[in-house]
């Protein structure tokens, strides 16, 4: 049986970004980082990164500044809860325009 035949018969996913589908469409609230408050962004030093550490879907980058991949972010809000600087706010998706989405 070819791999294509097998993969059409059952649901198969491989370890890697996005193989669980476009989970960003599930999101009703969006985490937005305030770079004025974010510790690594503010200090320019690779520190804190609690958001990266706690994100269950690995959609936050460990970069200066940290970024969030909204294609897969489900909007669970753990990053906002764990941010010691209170730099992440969960914003209602309905408040964004179509272009911003």
């Amino acid at each position: 049986m070819s791999k294509e035949e097998f993969c059409s018969m059952i649901s198969v996913s491989e370890p890697g970004p996005g193989d669980g589908g476009n989970t960003g469409s599930w999101r009703v609230v969006r985490p937005v980082i305030d770079l004025e408050k974010c510790i690594p962004a503010k200090t320019g030093k690779p520190s804190c990164f609690n958001c990266w550490l706690y994100c269950p879907d690995a959609v936050v980058t460990k970069t200066l500044p940290p970024t969030i991949d909204y294609t897969y972010c489900k909007g669970c809000g753990i990053c906002a809860e764990e941010c010691p600087a209170g730099a992440i706010t969960m914003v209602d998706e309905a408040s964004f325009t179509k272009e911003e989405k």
Binding site: I10, S11, S13, E14, D19, G20
Partner: peptide, 8 residues
Amino acid sequence: PRNFNTVT
């Protein structure tokens, strides 16, 4: 490594 019968 693969996941089989994952959520669709």
